[in-house]
Amino acid sequence: MSDIIQQYRIEKEPYYRPVSDEVELYEAAYSVRMPMMLKGPTGCGKTRFVEHMAWKLGKPLITVACNEDMTASDLVGRFLLDAQGTRWQDGPLALGARFGAIVYLDEVVEARQDTTVVIHPLTDNRRVLPLEKKGELVHAHPDFQLVISYNPGYQSLMKDLKQSTKQRFGGLDFNYPDHAIETEIVAHETGVNAEVAGKLVSIAERARNLKGHGLDEGISTRMLIYAGSLIATGVDPVKACRVALVRPITDDPDMRDALDAAVTTFF
């Protein structure tokens, strides 16, 4: 395997706590190389899940953070000029297709629709990637798989995947885990005890109930891990929660007061 792709191998097992049968379903999907779509709120574990599965399957993982300025060339590749003249550089899709990596397009709907259509030939029975500028047709390596993710809560009619794209993927729904599992995750990731982790989860659950009632998004599991990590270093829990949970998600004074009150209820 090319040295270029070796850097994308995950050497150490990423911690992931299964919530349901998502691990078994993903393994089955990978066995038939089905492209997969992961849907769920921000910070609920989608990226960690993909990292864990890539490690479990022993495959390199190439992650692309999608954005509205991303072009098809950013995904496929382009010619570059250097001291020796012009050379071709594969983009992440071409690299993954050549060498059998899992390519993960995170928040794929942030990319323009005219950019995301380049994935179509890779996500049906053809499993090819045309490099039109280079005049090459890359046949996907047998181990190649494409995975995309997005947060349905952020979608509008202007920002959504085409049906012609959606129907090329299998789908897994993700959400924040139930109280006991999320407490276990926070305790494991931060080193705080189960009591402190449970209090952090309770604060998050209150905030999530405010989604759509003053908050665009609730407190994520990722944010709880930030707060727990601060507490584990000796930061006062109330201050840690203000820094990691309350201040990042809202600037509204009344909402901040409500969330601060929830923090002081538990700490």
Rank of each mutant, 00 (worst) to 15 (best):
V147L: 06
L93H: 00
T165V: 13
T42V: 12
H213V: 06
S2A: 14
I119M: 12
G170L: 13
V138S: 04
P248W: 09
P41N: 02
A244G: 03
G234N: 06
S73D: 11
T86S: 14
R98W: 00
H213P: 05
G191Q: 02
V23P: 01
N209E: 14
S156F: 05
Q163S: 13
A72V: 04
L80D: 11
P152C: 08
P35H: 09
M255F: 07
V108E: 02
V23N: 03
Q163D: 12
T250K: 04
M36W: 07
R17H: 13
P41R: 01
T47G: 08
E24A: 15
E107T: 04
R17E: 15
H52Y: 15
S73T: 11
G170P: 06
A94Y: 04
I225N: 02
C44S: 14
D143W: 03
M36V: 13
P253G: 06
C44E: 03
D178S: 09
R98T: 00
P41V: 01
V243E: 14
N67K: 12
C44Q: 02
T183Y: 07
N125G: 12
P121T: 01
R256H: 05
E217K: 12
Y104T: 08
L61V: 02
S164R: 10
G91Q: 02
V196Q: 13
Y30I: 09
A240E: 06
S229V: 08
F99D: 10
K39R: 10
D173K: 11
T183H: 08
V118W: 02
L210P: 01
A72D: 06
N193V: 09
D69P: 09
H179R: 13
D236Y: 08
V103S: 07
A94E: 05
H188G: 14
C44W: 01
N125I: 11
V103R: 04
G191T: 00
A197L: 00
A94K: 06
L81E: 12
A54P: 03
E51W: 00
L93M: 04
M36A: 13
R87K: 11
A240S: 08
Y176W: 03
Q6A: 14
F99M: 11
A204K: 04
M53D: 00
L105Y: 02
A101R: 01
Y104M: 11
T42P: 14
W88E: 03
V243Q: 10
E184R: 10
K46N: 01
D260I: 14
L95T: 07
K159E: 11
V117P: 07
I119S: 04
R126G: 05
R98P: 00
H139D: 10
Q113G: 05
V138Y: 03
G191R: 04
I181T: 10
D260E: 15
E27W: 09
T116K: 06
G153Q: 08
R206T: 11
T116W: 04
D236L: 13
R127K: 11
L80K: 14
T71Q: 13
E27H: 13
S31R: 15
A240H: 08
G40I: 02
R78K: 15
R242A: 09
V23A: 10
F99Q: 08
H188Y: 15
G228L: 07
V186D: 03
I181V: 14
A194G: 13
